[in-house]
């Protein structure tokens, strides 16, 4: 459904993406994971046929994104990073306009409008000005805009950015519901989000694909260990040795009064660690599991996978 081959884009002399290749079958959901400035938006804009690539090719359902933009645009629903909303319009007025420029027949438009309002749970705010909607509702209007012409392909650029946790869960659920018949690409810089909604994850950093895998294999590769952070009030010089003596502890790193304890995968040692701290009267202040950050992911991928698919 989507084929991207050796895509490169330069902004002036600055390389935004270099030699990006991946492909997607019909019905697949792919997450594009990368930190700020990685090139996610650039890749997505090329796929929407609104930004020409410097070299390489991108094809959507066999249509070339550069040579056949009109066909490509008909097949795609795109939610940009900042939802493109005319805030002085009501939800209905806005979606009607979008429906018209997406080429929906006038007879079909009311039906399409009702369907998308229903699907995005926007029916009760349909007459409200977009300017007065909450951030979460605005994001839904943005999604509705991408969906109104019922496109087989959805491209969503950081669809949950700036939302509160409840809204994030709702939007993720909406995206999962939309999968199935549709082919979806979404971008994010949050690892759990990528694994929560997508079966496949492409990790991109500094314009290059660092890793591409299914969600299960990626998490397996990444989660060889878990980390616990332990903050103590009175750290004695023997803390390190005593922690390392615990079964299941792989390494201990000290940063001031905080100890980062790396443990074997699947063993939650928080209870043991807490007990040791209390028994020794170290003055336990904090004890928590540390989630793997995107930096950890990149470090890990580039350190352990050298020579596999890390370097181009």
């Amino acid at each position: 459904m989507i084929q991207v081959e050796h895509l490169t884009k330069l902004y002036g002399s600055k390389t935004a993406i270099a030699d990006v290749s991946f492909s997607l079958e019909k019905g697949e959901v792919l997450a594009f994971l990368g930190p700020n400035g990685a090139g996610k938006t650039t890749t997505m804009r090329i796929l929407t046929a609104s930004l020409p690539a410097t070299s390489g090719s991108a094809k959507i359902a066999g249509y070339d994104c550069f040579d056949q933009p009109k066909e490509v645009k008909r097949l795609i629903g795109y939610l940009p990073e900042i939802p493109p909303l005319y805030t002085e319009m009501t939800v209905t007025e806005y979606l009607t306009f979008v429906g018209r420029i997406k080429g929906i027949e006038p007879e079909r438009l009311p039906v399409a409008l009702d369907q998308v309002l229903e699907r995005m749970s926007l029916s009760e705010v349909r007459g409200r000005l977009i300017a007065n909607l909450s951030r979460g509702f605005k994001q839904r209007v943005g999604l509705a805009q991408a969906l109104i012409h019922d496109p087989p392909i959805l491209i969503l650029d950081e669809p949950t950015v700036g939302l509160d946790p409840k809204q994030i869960i709702e939007i993720r659920q909406l995206i999962r519901d939309l999968a199935g018949a549709r082919t979806i690409i979404l971008s994010t810089h949050i690892l759990p989000e990528a694994t929560a909604v997508a079966k496949r994850v492409v990790i991109i950093n500094d314009g290059r694909i660092v890793a591409e895998d299914t969600q299960e294999q990626l998490s397996a590769r990444l989660r060889r260990s878990e980390k616990v952070s332990l903050t103590l009030k009175r750290s004695t010089p023997d803390v390190r040795e005593r922690l390392l003596a615990l079964p299941g502890v792989l390494s201990v790193r000290q940063e001031g009064h905080t100890f980062l304890v790396e443990t074997e995968l699947g063993r939650d040692l928080r209870e043991d660690l807490g007990r040791v701290a209390v028994q020794n009267d170290w003055g336990l202040l904090e004890l928590k599991l540390v989630a793997m950050t995107l930096e950890d992911v990149f470090l890990r991928l580039t350190q352990h996978e050298e020579g596999m698919e890390t370097q181009p």
């Binding site: 929407t48 645009k73 008909r74 795609i76 795109y78 940009p80 493109p84 909303l85 420029i101 997406k102």
Partner: peptide
């Protein structure tokens, strides 16, 4: 400014 141009240029209008 409002980034709504993005909607127009990704729609099947020239």
């Amino acid at each position: 400014k409002l980034k709504t141009m993005e909607l127009l240029v990704t729609s099947p209008v020239t």
